[in-house]
Amino acid sequence: MLRTFTLKFLRLVLVVLVVTFITFGLTKLQPGDPVSKIIPFGTAQQKAALTQDLGLNEPVYQQYGKWLGNFLQGDFGKYYDSKQSVNTVIKTSLPVSLELMLYAQFFALLIAIPLGVTTAYRAGSKYDRGANATMFALLALPNFVVALLLAIYVGAKWQLLPTQSNVIPFPLNPLDNWTYMLMPVVALTLGQIAVYMRLLRSDMIATLQEDFITTAKAKGIPTRRILWRHALRPSSLTLLTVAGLNVGALIGGAIVVENVFGVPGLGKRITEAILAKQYPALQSYVAIIAILYVTVNFAIDILYSVLDPRIRNARSVA
């Protein structure tokens, strides 16, 4: 058990290292150096001095090592021009993005699970076919389309909710926080519902064919309890893994949605950093996303073995 988890953990560390190194290497490949970007009208000496100053003339691996050392000590670097600390930007923007993704994930599962369970139970019925067709259409609806539709109608036309949001931190004013978050969350949630619901439904249909469901029925357990206590848990393993891996899609979605609504989250900051060629900042953002993603999936792995005792056992044997 311990050994498998250690192996898994090492693997995750490896993923983070490789990903950050690749992005680091990419920053070195790009045309137009950051120095000319920072002081476009500087003299050759000034540029050389700044290059020296930023350590840009050292070999890539040395720069990477330096960055990594700082990163591990909690120093995420500075913006080239404003000298603003990346740490402070992360401190304000990461919670916003996390909140957005957390809500989206929560509501997507909250809606998808009952839908998946009930449609599986009534597979083939009108209700099932209707829900399924709706979800199939939702799969084809990119989140930016939802975001724009909301911005056009709810935001601009009917003016029900504020668009250009200036998210109020939740502890300061929960209600304001929610009104600003509502549209981004909906935009991010809809597509996920479809993914989760359809996967859970097909797994549930398979589980409901299992012998142990008949056993439960033969015990006189009510249908509702069979669905939720007997069938859901063994059916939720794929869902769980997908929900974990989906954090990647969620991050991508958050970047788009934050940009459409102007939510000051990490996604918005990343695109800003990319456009402004703020590589040290970008490097740290990418690393944080990689760590976030990898941590979620590590947690899912652990949860996996909680949900399925067979895996727990197999692993402890291995």
Binding site: L14, V15, V18, V19, V247, G248, A249, I251, G252, G253, I255, V256, I270, V286, I289, A290, Y293, V294, N297
Partner: peptide
């Protein structure tokens, strides 16, 4: 490893 990273990013 390539897959272990958000693709849009």
């Amino acid at each position: 490893i390539l897959l272990a990273f958000p693709q849009l990013v």
